[in-house]
Each structure stands twice: as C-alpha cells, then as structure tokens.
Design a protein around this nucleic acid. Structure first.
Length: 280
DNA sequence: CACACAACCTGTCAGC
DNA sequence: TGCTGACAGGTTGTGT
C-alpha cells in the first residue's frame, strides 16, 4: 500500500515515540511475514536503544545500538499502531508488538503479509540486496531532469511501468505515478524513451510536488495521531485521477464530453487512471 | 538485458 | 444469503 509519502509519515510518527527509547520487550506472533523473519529477531532486538529512524524509498531504516539496522517494509497492507501500554489482546494480523521503556506499545499489523523486516549489521547497509539496486531518492539532490532522462532513454516500456521501476526512481507507487503523469500531461502509454529529454525536465519538479503535497497532508494527520486510533500508515488524500474512473477530468471535463472522462486501463497488471484528452 | 506476468496472502465489494 | 470473480497502494522470481 504505502508509497513514499505514507512511509515517510510512518517514519515521523515512529520517531516521536521510539527515538531514544529502549525496546524492553518484543512479541513475535509468527515466524514469517512475506519472508522468514531473521533468526532470533525478537531476542536480538530486545534491550536495544533506538538511535535514529531514516527512510530510503519505501523502507524504514532504524539504527539501534550495537551497530544494527532494523529494516521495515510495509508491503501493501502493513501499518504501525502506536498506543500507550499495557498492550491488550492482539487483534487479528497483529504480527509483532514492540514495547518501549517508557510504556508505549508499537504494533505491526499486516493483513496480506506482503511486508517484511530485517535486522543486520550497519556495515551491510550499502550492499543490502534490497537497497543497493534502488535509483535516486525523488526528493533528493540526485533526482533531476538529466538523471531521469538518462534512466528512461532507450527503454521501450510504457512510461507508467518505467516510473514504477524502483531502479529508475525509488519510492513511487501506482497512485503517485498516475498523479504525476496526469499533472505533467503525459500519457501513461507513451514509451519511456519518448519522455527522455525535455519531458523529463518537466516531470521531475512535478513528481517532487506530488510527493511533497502528500507528505504535508500526512503530516497534518500526524499532529495528534496518538489521541485518535494511533494508526500510522494510511491517510486520506485527495487524488485527481487515481480511483476516479468515469468521472469528469478536473482539468478538461467541464464540457461533459466523453473524452474528458477519466479512464482506467491495466498496464503490467496494475490499474492506470488517466485523462485521454489532457495526457498525450 | 529488458520486459511481461505469475506468485505471495487476505479481505472487500459488485454482481448474480 | 451465499457464491464467484475482480480488485487492492509492492516486490521477487520466472519465463520469453
């Protein structure tokens, strides 16, 4: 589920409760998520102090003392719930429960179990098989028109698929690719190669805007996340095309013409939403 | 190498 | 009400 903005929101929420705290107890309710959890995962994490929380693409990277990195990926349906202790009876799909030394309880819930976690020595960070292939961070300095253009040039796949490729740019998912292409007026079916050059220059700031706005929206839901249901990972956001099949395009659809309605197509097995009149 | 597609797993919703 | 099929925000592995 969560794309970069949601993961960033989770990271910020977790930082508020975990940074500087000691994990006094870790309850592991099953041996695996998408992959087997590391050997002695709970035991190796227990007693560690959380030093800092970072994000790379859709991964949350938590440095704990002893030189270890605790890596979390939320998959499609993973979420973190933060509540004051003591912990009650685990709900369905509560797979891991982390207790802090100041009495807070952080629960990892994941219905579909596409998420995963790892725990490894910080010396292995750069070479981690899931982190090493990642492309530039879309909100970082390494992501600019030339960089995107170079990674799209020569590729014969649709631009939609190319932007979902985490080695092209790291952190975009289905929703924000649709939104960025809509704002850029670029048809999702165009070959990636044709978006190299001037269109890449235009696309980069649009991708930054789309993600930045979503992070801001998530931040506003964070303010008192503990008082509500404590859930981190999902927030309501208004999308211009995603999920709006058959609705009038917000840009050109006011004339009621059928070609100004949002269409849904399937590209490499994923839904794409776009305006056939605005996006060329 | 580049690309398309199935698989992983569970829940929800529309339609019959 | 119950059944079936489509679909869901991600990533890996396999096959062409």
């Amino acid at each position: 589920m969560p794309e970069l903005p949601e993961v960033e929101t989770v990271r910020r929420g977790l930082t508020l409760k975990l940074e500087g705290r000691v994990l006094v107890r870790v309850d592991q309710h099953r041996p695996n998520l998408r992959f087997p959890l590391p050997v002695d995962f709970a035991a190796r994490l227990t007693g560690r102090r959380v030093l800092s929380l970072d994000r790379r693409a859709k991964y949350i990277l938590i440095r704990v003392d002893g030189g270890l990195v605790w890596m979390i990926h939320l998959g499609m349906s993973g979420s973190m719930v933060v509540k004051p202790g003591p912990a009650g009876v685990p709900a369905a799909h509560d797979h891991l429960v982390f207790h802090t030394d100041d009495g807070w309880v952080v629960t990892y819930n994941d219905v579909r179990r596409f998420g995963f976690m790892d725990l490894f020595d910080e010396s292995g960070l750069d070479s981690h098989p899931m982190l090493a292939p990642l492309g530039p961070e879309p909100l970082g300095n390494g992501f600019h028109g030339v960089a995107l253009s170079e990674r799209l040039a020569g590729r014969r796949t649709p631009i939609k698929a190319a932007l979902l490729d985490q080695t092209v740019v790291a952190g975009l998912g289905n929703i924000y690719v649709c939104e960025a292409l809509f704002r850029a007026g670029i048809a999702p079916t165009r070959l990636a190669d044709s978006v190299a050059g001037a269109d890449s220059e235009r696309l980069v700031p649009i991708i930054r805007d789309v993600l930045g706005e979503a992070i801001a929206a998530g931040g506003s839901t964070l303010r008192d996340f503990v008082q509500s249901d404590g859930e981190l990972g999902y927030f309501q956001h208004n999308f211009r095309v995603y999920g709006r099949e058959d609705e009038a395009c917000v840009t050109c659809g006011h004339d009621g013409a059928p070609e100004g309605r949002i269409r849904r197509i399937v590209q490499s097995g994923r839904s794409t939403f776009f305006c056939p009149r605005c996006q060329r």
